[in-house]
Design a binder for these strands. Structure first.
Length: 614
DNA sequence: ATAGGGTTAG
């Protein structure tokens, strides 16, 4: 608050200290004012300086010096008060590009005036007396990116080219970010590829875009390219850790961790967000222990790092610990939970079927923390209720929530219907809803509906669904499991016979089955519902070939003693595989972790961490 | 003066 050039606190009345011998020198006075404006970080002081300037000759209308001073005032105010920036701007005759930029920047950085940034650029173009420059477009594009204003941004892009700013690296970085944020990965990549000059920011922008679009391997590929040219920074590493998490590859994640420690600057190593990303990566790659270790060794936590840890415990089924961490975060560190925190908390309750707690945290979020529930929060609660068998309460919640239910929500209901036989009509209704709302999850709907019919033993309807799927060209998403051995990922589809060790794998599977049978295992065919007769031979066969069986068998053949077998599966684990995996963990005395579509299962001594609730 | 820093449900 004190003026940088004033050794004493300023007198309350006036902000401008003057020296008597120079007070009459207008040039010196002007420079003094400029200096004061530049150093100003407080809007009321800025206003005082401005007022002072207006009272002196230095600020008369056509004075070029005044014009310059106003530029500085606009620039300084743009990060302090948009209203003031706008007012000053209106008073200026013939604003130059710098002044327009200051106002556009102010709007683009504000929380609620992004639209204005775009319309100002439009006004600037229509006005035509000054041309936007290489500074204008990044500001405008930032606003477009935030607003998901694809067509506006494309027009901005056209202006960029028209005005010969095509090669500008800042503008291009903004364009990459803009296209990615508007969901057009192809265009983001195109801009990146055409850039005549790139900085580390350019690489970060495109890598981040790939990660957000789920193209994790492509992101890793570009990272390796980037390393030849630039030193990765905290932004890079956060994206890379996120890619490792997406791939679910612990060895890759550990490599990235080591890379940070070995190659990155201290400020990256100590970066709280990088550390939170590490926590998140270890959670998603199945190593809750490593995640906890990093979390505990952090010298400082914030809401992000707590969220990573809480979500981690939730996805590993450790609901009590997740809730305990939530309490610690609030009570001991006095931090304010945010909406993501509650996604973690509700998801923890969900994975353990804690209905009362879930309802109570949902209320707490609204009433105690004034957080508006988002679709995700409703999603958690609906799933929690439905899976606990409270389908009517779940439906009630769906019809009363202020969002249009998305396919994920309907799926939760349908999923629950599969497990409670009596709701065939409801399931049909829900299935209709999902199919009507379109979306890309349709194949899942057919599969679920056929499971509902199967659980009601309505085989004719199961057959009908199968026919519908054939007629409509809907295919079931193939099950696929990955298992990592010595840092190499091996991929198996259901019934896969393409792996070089296929013979050994099937031999091992056979041995496993014999051991299982002598341990009293009987196949659970309840979820092999796409086979429409009651002869279970074919069903058992299809279960036997589920991708995770192959992956686990391969893991048993090749594992290093004492290390768990880690499987990453694209679909949810079926009942029978769950049962089999539990038995394998006991008979072979091996730990197996399976990362499902939604969560982790840790199999050990014949039990699973999910306690058979998933 | 200018480009990027969270996530999130199943």
């Amino acid at each position: 608050m004190a003026f940088a050039i004033s050794p004493q606190p300023p007198p309350s009345s006036l902000a401008v200290p003057t020296k008597p011998d120079r007070a009459d020198d207008p040039h010196h006075h002007h420079l003094r004012l400029l200096q004061l404006v530049n150093d100003c970080s407080d809007i009321s002081h800025l206003k005082q300086i401005h007022a002072r300037a207006l009272r002196t000759a230095a600020a008369t209308a056509h004075d070029p010096q005044a014009h310059f001073l106003h530029s500085r005032i606009l620039h300084a105010s743009s990060s302090l008060s948009i209203d003031y920036t706008r007012r000053v701007f209106r008073q200026v005759e013939n604003p130059n590009a710098f002044m327009w930029n200051a106002l556009i920047r102010a709007c683009a950085q504000s929380g609620d005036r992004k639209e204005e940034a775009v319309s100002l650029l439009r006004g600037m173009l229509e006005d035509g007396s000054v041309s936007p420059d290489q500074y204008t477009f990044p500001f405008a594009l930032k606003a477009c990116a935030y607003l998901f204003a694809l067509s506006e941004g494309k027009q901005v892009h056209a202006q960029v080219l028209k005005r010969g700013l095509g090669p500008d690296v800042y503008v291009n970085n903004s364009l990459v970010h803009f296209y990615a944020s508007c969901g057009v990965l192809e265009d983001a990549k195109k801009v990146f590829e055409k850039m005549p000059e790139r900085t580390a920011v350019s690489w970060n922008a495109v890598i981040d875009a790939l990660v957000r679009f789920g193209e994790f391997s492509a992101a890793m590929g570009l990272f390796h390219e980037m390393q030849k040219l630039f030193e990765p920074d905290g932004y890079t590493m956060q994206s890379i850790l996120s890619a490792c998490a997406g791939l679910g590859s612990l060895s890759l994640g550990m490599w990235a961790h080591a890379y940070i420690l070995r190659k990155c600057d201290k400020d990256v190593v100590d970066d709280i967000l990088v550390k939170s990303s590490l926590v998140d990566m270890y959670c998603r790659c199945g190593s809750l222990g490593m995640a906890e270790q990093i979390f505990r060794r952090m010298e400082k936590h914030n809401v992000n790092s707590w969220n990573s840890m809480i979500l981690g415990f939730a996805m590993h089924g450790q609901a009590e610990t997740a809730l305990d961490y939530f309490a610690q975060m609030v009570m001991e560190e006095g931090l304010m939970p945010n909406s993501v925190t509650f996604v973690g908390v509700l998801s923890a309750c969900n994975h353990k079927g804690m209905v009362d707690e879930g309802r109570s945290y949902f209320d707490k979020m609204i009433n105690e923390y004034s957080i508006e529930p988002q679709l995700e929060h409703y999603g958690c609660l609906v799933d929690l209720l439905a899976r606990a068998g409270l389908i009517d309460e779940a439906l009630d919640l769906v019809s009363n929530m202020p969002f249009k239910p998305d396919p994920v929500i309907w799926r939760s209901i349908l999923d629950a219907c599969c497990k409670t036989n009596a709701r065939v009509e409801l399931s049909e209704e829900v299935a209709k809803q999902i199919l009507a709302s379109g979306g890309d999850s349709c194949s899942g709907v057919y599969v679920l509906l056929s499971k509902v019919y199967a659980s009601a033993r309505r085989w004719d309807d199961v057959a009908l669904i199968r026919k519908l799927m054939t007629d409509r060209g809907v295919t079931k998403e193939p099950g696929c499991s990955l298992v990592e051995i010595y840092g190499v990922s091996h991929e198996f589809f259901a019934g896969d016979i393409t792996h070089p060790q296929t013979e050994d794998i099937y031999q091992a599977l056979k041995e496993v089955e014999e051991k299982l049978e002598s341990a009293g295992y009987v196949p659970d065919v309840s979820q092999a519902s796409m086979i429409n007769d009651e002869h279970s031979e074919e069903k058992e066969q299809s279960l036997r070939l589920h991708s995770e069986r192959l992956a686990i068998a391969f893991g048993l053949l090749n594992r290093k003693q004492g290390t768990p077998i880690r499987v990453f599966k694209n679909l949810r684990v079926c009942n029978d595989c769950h049962k089999v995996t539990k038995l394998i963990s006991k008979i072979y005395n091996v730990e197996i972790t399976v990362r499902d579509r939604t969560r982790f299962h840790h199999f050990k001594h014949g039990c699973c961490s999910c306690m058979d609730y998933w």
